[in-house]
């Protein structure tokens, strides 16, 4: 089943800004799905529409088959959302914030207590249980927002830059917990600025730019579709005629050093060819990072 099915969603804000232009996406249940794109691409708008907090101009959004313009409350019950903007809460303690929020989703009192302690522990906020939420540091406020989204064990969790401005160690804490929850069956959608995060975590990625989806693909396949691998080889022989065995993919060729940039997936072909020349002294293979692919696609 699809956790999310977005069909031709467009969004034009009141001031005329077109944030989304016929966006269609599918997120399969159980996946960790990354929504990437430069600032202003429309990620938060899309997340707002999925979570029912931003109205759409046209198109349909279904959450586990529920059309969120018809069954919004039912759809919302299945969701946990971490908004992009950091939220503070003037009078309530961390515990109270979570207690009320879980209550909104119908979690009963005894279950709430247990669940709150568990989530706070996992997100290393246990010692802040009775602190007023507004006195938390920025990173702690983020983790509290993550806690709010997870507290009712939703089937689908949407996180809009949950790790922005959070240091590396805490990012790991957040992602470890999110991964654990994913293993228990929840589907995860998130946006991030840290592309290494997306690369490590997501099994599927959509890149959006200027309100349009440029690609939607499994992370591994992205590399083969758009990535370039670099081979740096040093050969023992000099003066050989590489052109004879290799085609035009050679970028640099001087003396006994070769640099080959090729579409990812083709590297074994060239390695074999190089090996036949004999005397392979040194070899380095550079795999493309998601960042390379991202930059290439967004610029194009």
């Amino acid at each position: 089943m699809e956790a999310v099915e977005i069909d031709k969603i467009s969004k034009i804000y009141e001031d005329g800004t077109q944030a989304l232009n016929e966006v269609s996406l599918k997120v399969r249940e159980g996946k960790i799905y990354g929504l990437l794109g430069p600032n202003g691409a429309g990620k938060s708008t899309l997340i707002g529409i999925i979570s029912g907090t931003v109205s759409k101009t046209s198109g349909t959004a279904k959450i586990f088959g529920l059309d969120n313009s018809k069954d919004l409350q039912k759809a919302k019950l299945l969701l946990g959302v971490v908004p992009q903007e950091v939220v503070s809460e003037p009078v309530f303690t961390v515990f109270e914030v979570l207690d009320f929020f879980a209550g909104f989703y119908g979690v009963k009192k005894n279950d709430r207590k247990k669940k709150i302690d568990e989530v706070l522990e996992a997100l290393h906020l246990g010692s802040k249980r009775n602190t007023r939420a507004r006195f938390l540091s920025g990173g702690m406020k983020r983790r509290l927002m993550v806690a709010k989204a997870l507290i009712h064990e939703p089937k689908l969790i949407i996180l809009d830059e949950p790790t922005a401005g959070v240091d590396v160690e805490l990012r790991t804490i957040i992602w470890n917990y999110v991964k654990e929850i994913n293993k228990k069956g929840s589907t995860i959608i998130f946006t991030t600025h840290y592309l290494e995060e997306a690369e490590k975590l997501c099994s599927e990625i959509a890149i959006i730019n200027k309100g349009k989806v440029i690609v939607e693909e499994e992370t591994d396949k992205l590399k083969y579709l758009f990535g370039e691998t670099t081979i740096d080889a040093t050969l023992e022989n000099t003066g050989f005629e590489l052109e004879k065995i290799l085609d035009t993919d050679i970028i640099k060729f001087n003396d006994n050093e070769v640099k080959i940039i090729t579409k990812t997936g083709n590297e074994s072909y060239y390695l074999q060819k190089l090996a036949t020349l004999g005397g392979l002294k040194k070899i380095e293979i550079g795999q493309p990072s998601l960042e390379d692919i991202f930059v290439k696609l967004v610029k194009a």
Binding site: S51, Q73, L79, P83, V87, E89, F104
Partner: peptide, 18 residues
């Protein structure tokens, strides 16, 4: 008004309430 300023207004938008 305080919720609008502190950002916690998003709570009632996200929550499954009519």
């Amino acid at each position: 008004v305080i919720a609008k300023f502190s950002g916690s207004i998003s709570d009632i938008l996200i929550a499954p309430l009519t």
